[in-house]
């Protein structure tokens, strides 16, 4: 039963591994260039799934700032914008009461102060005072709590680590985030709050998807050009065509004395 549990608890890694192997196998085993690109895509997608799954907090929703919370914010007399500092790709910030996100803000303040960069400090000091007393309290606590070297990400991560599906990881980050985790748990009851998944992997994967799309486009464009130049996109046929152009035979191993004179422009008469 333990084994079964071991397997089931890590189902996201199994999916990742299987998809990754399917993709890798396709890239290596298939001779058709378009199929190779499909394989590459499957391979990349498996990595995307892996990243998204490590950012998932059990019970957490997508890190999206919804209008209901905005209304709540106004009830709590918060500045909606005050916490928007985390940059565009991470619209995670809720009012200070929301434990995990406030924590992220808070630790960031702590870092900004501790890293003793006056410019950064000023900037974020503005952020700090913009919130109400409630927020500031959290911020200070979080600030104290974190040393210079403890980035806010650890909190998001600590959450992720506490998710049952990821409990294998507690050994590392768990104790690191454990104390915060406890704090989060107690504080969480005081506020009406949605629990958010860690947004950072989403952001990373958004970037990786764009890179993947670009790679696919370039790969397909090359496949089109190869089809035009050779009339085929099967790897073995391409090799045969090259060998015929260079050595005059399909398999150069049969005729060892070829090779001279090759490499002159346009051996295959390709355009």
């Amino acid at each position: 039963m333990d084994i079964l549990q071991f397997v089931i608890e890590r189902f996201n890694y199994w999916i990742f591994t299987v998809l990754m192997m399917v993709g890798l196998y396709t890239v290596i085993a298939r001779g058709n260039l378009v199929k190779k690109i499909i394989g590459l895509n499957i391979f990349q997608t498996s990595v995307f799934i892996y990243y998204i799954s490590i950012g998932k907090v059990s019970g957490g929703t997508a890190p999206i700032f919804t209008t209901e919370h905005q209304k709540e914010l106004k009830k709590h007399e918060h500045h909606g914008d005050a916490h928007h500092g985390d940059g565009h790709q991470v619209p995670t910030h809720q009012d200070g009461g929301h434990q995990d996100t406030a924590h992220q803000d808070g630790s960031h303040q702590g870092d900004a102060h501790d890293s003793a960069d006056p410019m950064t400090m000023d900037l974020h000091a503005g952020d700090l005072h913009a919130g109400d007393a409630n927020t500031s309290a959290t911020l200070t606590r979080a600030g104290e709590h974190h040393g210079v070297s403890t980035p806010d990400l650890h909190d998001g991560d600590a959450n992720a680590l506490h998710a049952p599906a990821n409990d294998a990881l507690v050994s590392q980050g768990g104790d690191h985030g454990g104390d915060h985790g406890g704090e989060i748990a107690t504080k969480a009851t005081e506020f009406i709050e949605p629990l958010y998944s860690n947004p950072l992997p989403h952001v990373l994967i958004l970037t990786a998807i764009v890179v993947g799309v670009a790679t696919t486009a370039v790969g397909l464009a090359l496949a089109v050009r190869i089809r035009e130049a050779y009339g085929t996109i099967e790897e073995d046929e391409l090799e045969t065509a090259d060998n015929v152009a260079e050595f005059g035979v399909a398999d150069p191993r049969q005729q060892q004395d070829g090779g001279q004179g090759a490499g002159r422009l346009n051996p295959g008469g390709a355009q």
């Binding site: 500045h79 909606g80 914008d81 005050a82 928007h84 500092g85 940059g87 565009h88 900037l123 503005g126 952020d127 005072h129 913009a130």
Partner: peptide
Amino acid sequence: LGYDVIDPESTHHAGQHYGILLVE
């Protein structure tokens, strides 16, 4: 890309909004 300098007077990081709107 330190957007805050776009609107340094703002108390709620309006510069971040302008900056990200332009970039997006």
